[in-house]
Amino acid sequence: MMLRLETRLAAVLTAVALCSLSGAALATPEVDAPAPAFTGVDTAGKTWALEDLAGQPVILEWTNHDCPYVKKHYGAGNMQTLQREATDAGYVWLSVISSAPGTQGHVSAAEADALTAERDAAPTAVLLDTEGTIGRAYGARTTPHMYVIDEAGTLVYMGGIDDRATTDPADIPAATNYVRLAMSELEAGQPISRPVTRPYGCSVKY
C-alpha cells in the first residue's frame, strides 16, 4: 500500500520535473559517450560541424574576453600556449562565444578577429554562438569551460581549465592543467584520470 503510493507519487514528481525541464536549460553531456553534435559559424563565415571533423580530436573552449577568469589565462599567455600545443598535436581548437547580443563578451566577427590578433591567440577558429545553441547542447556554464573530444567523436573531458579556481595569474604555474593532462593521457592511450571537473569562471551570458 505504502509502496504503491510512493511509486505513484514518484511518477507524478518525475513527470512534473520533466515537464518543467523540457523548455529549459542546459543539457548535461556525458563523458565516454558521443559528444553532442553541433554546427556553428566562425568569424570568417565558415561553417563547422562536429561530424565533419571525424578522425580529428577537437577541443572546445568557451570564452568571454571581459571575464576576469578568461583574462587570467589570456593575460598570462597560458591559453595561447595551450592552443598552440593542441593545434600542433593535430587538435582542432574551437573557441566558442555564447554571449547573447547586449551581454558581456558579445562581439562581432571583426571584433573577435581583432581580439585574436591582439592577444596573439591561436585557435583553429572562433565560433559565434550568439543563440547559445552549442553552449546549451554542451551545458557550458562558465568561461572558460573546456571540452576535449577524441578522434572517434567521444567526449573524454569536460570541466575547468585547471585546478586553481581563482583570477590570480600567479596560480597558473603550480596548477594542474586538466586539458593538458587529458591530451597527454589521450596520446599515451591511457584512460583519462580526471574526466569531469568543476568548471570555474564567469557564467556564460546566454
Partner: peptide, 24 residues
C-alpha cells in the same frame, strides 16, 4: 543540476524531492 526545478511533495511522513543529477 543547480538550475533545475526541484518539485517536492510531502507524503505523510516523508518529504520527497525530485532533483536533476549534475555532472558528477
Amino acid at each position: 543540476e543547480h538550475a533545475a526545478a526541484q518539485p517536492w511533495a510531502i507524503d505523510g511522513a516523508r518529504l520527497l524531492m525530485t532533483l536533476t543529477p549534475g555532472e558528477a
